[in-house]
Design a binder for these strands. Structure first.
Length: 282
DNA sequence: CATAGCTCCTGACCGC
DNA sequence: TGCGGTCAGGAGCTAT
């Protein structure tokens, strides 16, 4: 579920409400992908800074002004995995923790709660963004899709060095981050490129078209508030609307919206790929 | 080294 | 209605 647009929508929905808040208490539910990596009590009293995003990770800075602190910087690296969502509830209205609520951060300004049925998500303490474990987890990430430094020339050069299918490369996130299965399929459809095309066979104009299509797809999803294919909600609990405009994702067997063909489902790297063989060419 | 496959976990859905 | 099988949006880890 949560690809870059959903993660960014989540960030925007609570960043300005949690900034400046002090940590009051923590509650840990069932284990997530990795252990928290610190004693929960050690975070009490820390002050939340501005939430930032890198790829599909969120970084919540938690600073400690006290002189005794070993890590005055530090913060929590958050990931929503496949089924996670964050809610930030102000006041005393926070519902009691449910079966899938696995992390609560009670602050002076509200409760930040991670709900994650599949528990592929993560909340990890790191003494800094440039220190392990955060730096290790972020080390392999490719360029941010909207970074101006990611030029068509750079993108094409990165693709030329690979032999995998272009869909697989988009998903891997080590050239450019942000696309998950839905947006990778949608961007390839928009660029009219067959998802099985080898990266090193993509011409410069076609790779440029793909980069533009990826950016357009992610921007539109962001504007729509993200996709809600199953259960995505932002930190206010609002659902997204983008799934209603998916052109190929989840549409196997249905008519293509651009040509007379039929959308097909194949499997690449154990993941479903949806595309139209009529208008997406190698 | 690049690449392919496996894996974590729960829930929804489908066919019988 | 119940049961078993299949599939699901991520991404780090391990083997080749």
């Amino acid at each position: 579920m949560p690809e870059l647009p959903e993660v960014e929508v989540t960030r925007r929905s609570f960043a300005d409400r949690i900034v400046g808040a002090r940590v009051v208490s923590l509650r840990l539910g069932a284990p997530l992908r990795w252990p928290l990596g610190c004693a929960p009590e050690s975070l009490v009293g820390r002050c939340a800074g501005l939430v930032t995003r890198r790829g599909k990770y969120l970084w919540l800075p938690l600073s400690d002004a006290s002189a005794s602190s070993q890590h005055p910087g530090g913060g929590l690296l958050l990931h929503l995995g496949m089924s996670g969502s964050l809610a930030f509830t102000q006041g005393d209205t926070a519902p009691p923790a449910g079966r899938h609520d696995h992390f609560d951060l009670q602050t002076t300004q509200g409760l930040l709660r991670l709900t994650d049925p599949r528990r592929f998500g993560a909340v990890v303490w790191s003494p800094g963004l440039d220190a392990a474990p955060a730096s290790t987890l972020l080390a392999r990430l490719g360029a941010e899709p909207f970074d101006a430094a990611l030029t068509p020339a750079h993108f094409h050069a990165a693709l030329r060095a690979r032999r995998t299918a272009v869909k697989t490369a988009l998903l891997a996130g080590d050239i450019v981050v942000g696309a998950g299965n839905i947006y990778a399929c949608e961007a390839l459809f928009e660029a009219a490129i067959d998802p099985r095309t080898r990266c090193d066979r993509l011409s410069r104009p076609r790779s440029e078209r793909l980069l533009a299509a990826l950016r357009a797809t992610l921007s539109r999803a962001l504007e729509a508030g993200g996709s809600t294919l199953r259960d995505f909600r932002d930190a206010h609990g609002a659902a997204g609307a983008y799934q209603s405009v998916a052109r190929v994702y989840g549409r196997a067997g249905l008519a293509c919206t651009r040509c007379t063909g039929t959308v097909r489902r194949i499997v690449q790297g154990q993941r479903s790929t949806f595309f139209c063989p009529g208008c997406q060419k190698r």
